[in-house]
C-alpha cells in the first residue's frame, strides 16, 4: 500500500513485530516501517476495542501506539533499530485477572 518515494538504500535493519520478522531502511520510524510492511492497524483501543493505526505521523495524535520493552510509545516518534521487538499494546502481559 505504501511505497518509498526514494530508492531504498542498502542499509536495512531487521526487527520484529509480534511474531513477524521484518526489515526496514535504516533511519525509518517504527510507524513507517510497519506501514511499509503493509501493517496499518497497530493496535486495538483498550476500551472499545476499535482498530487504530497512525494518523498524523508527527507525534500529535497518539493513535500509532505500540509497545517496546513493555512501555507504550508512539511508533511515529521511535526510530526502528536492528533487533527491535515491537509488540501490539493490547498484547502486553495479561495475567489471569485480565490486568496488564
Amino acid at each position: 500500500m505504501f511505497d518509498p518515494l526514494e530508492p531504498q538504500g542498502t542499509n536495512q535493519v531487521q526487527f520484529q513485530f509480534e511474531d513477524r520478522q521484518l526489515s526496514a531502511p535504516q533511519g525509518a520510524t517504527v510507524a513507517s516501517a510497519l506501514l511499509g510492511a503493509g501493517i496499518t492497524a497497530f493496535r486495538d483501543t483498550p476500551v472499545s476495542g476499535a482498530a487504530r493505526g497512525p494518523f498524523c505521523l508527527m507525534g500529535a495524535c497518539y493513535d500509532c501506539l505500540v509497545s517496546i520493552n513493555g512501555v507504550t510509545v508512539q511508533a511515529c516518534m521511535t526510530p526502528v533499530q536492528d533487533g527491535l521487538q515491537v509488540k501490539r499494546v493490547g498484547s502486553r502481559q495479561v495475567d489471569s485477572e485480565g490486568a496488564v
Binding site: V47, V94, G98
Partner: peptide
C-alpha cells in the same frame, strides 16, 4: 495514565480507573 484495559473495579480515595480507561 495512558488508557488501559479495565482492571480496577473499585475506586479508592487516591487511585481510580476512569470510564475512558
Amino acid at each position: 495514565t495512558e488508557k488501559l484495559p479495565f482492571f480496577l473495579k473499585y475506586p479508592s480515595g487516591r487511585i481510580r480507573q476512569v470510564n475512558e480507561g
